[in-house]
Design a binder for these strands. Sequence first.
DNA 1: AGCATTGTTTCACA
DNA 2: TTGTGAAACAATGC
Length: 250
Amino acid sequence: MPELPEAERARQQIERVLGREIVAVDDRDTYVCRPHAPGEIAAALTGRRLTRAHRRGKFLWVETDEGGPELGLHLGMAGRIAVDEDEAPRQWDRFALEFAGGGRMALRDKRRLGRAVIEPDFSHVGPDAAEVGRQAFRDRVGRGSTALKARLLDQGVIAGVGNLLADETLWRARLSPRRVAGELSEDELDRLRRELRAATRDAIRNGGVHTGRFMPARERAGRCPRCRTELARATIGGRTTYWCPRCQPD
DNA sequence: AGCATTGTTTCACA
DNA sequence: TTGTGAAACAATGC
């Protein structure tokens, strides 16, 4: 599930538990909590309260009270934040906080590619895809010899675009994912940024990136929602990519 | 059975 | 040294 819209929803979930006292931490999953040893995150957080929840792209972090450490969270490929829900079966709750009074916040993640870490480092993460300014977007996205879609997926360029949001945005902007990023005109880059912001805003409002107009067509032999042309399919930027060869010519 | 997967990091190579 | 692309990682679902 998680791309920028899902991460924003997760951030809002975290806001529900701000101010509660942490009385226990489950950090036993040494893969999700790497490089921390079991008990390290627990020692850092027990007795503290979360005070503010932040997000940049798909990366989440939470401040704690009076100079306490920051807690970094990432949803990985399939994670979500579960607040005050019953414990998941099969140890799908890879990381969890328990609060005074019985409440609970868990990183629920079947695939186990999510992440929980103390004092996260975001120095190699680009500006948020929905916040980046026009000129910065032109400079960062509109360069290099790589395919446009691969550029959008690079979290160090702009943060928050995943495989589905990239296809949705490129379709809305009528740009081929195969275009060379550095060869786009200013007008094309501005159009791409506008459609990215719009697609992101729609997805947050409607409950996730899977609510996009292009998403239902995104399958083998799917057809363009605008012109009914059969979609093209290829691996670009290491991910399966669908686009309309007529609306989005190379 | 085999392959694909809404993500990130690491490694090899030009 | 920098940029790019592929593989590794874990587990599940079709």
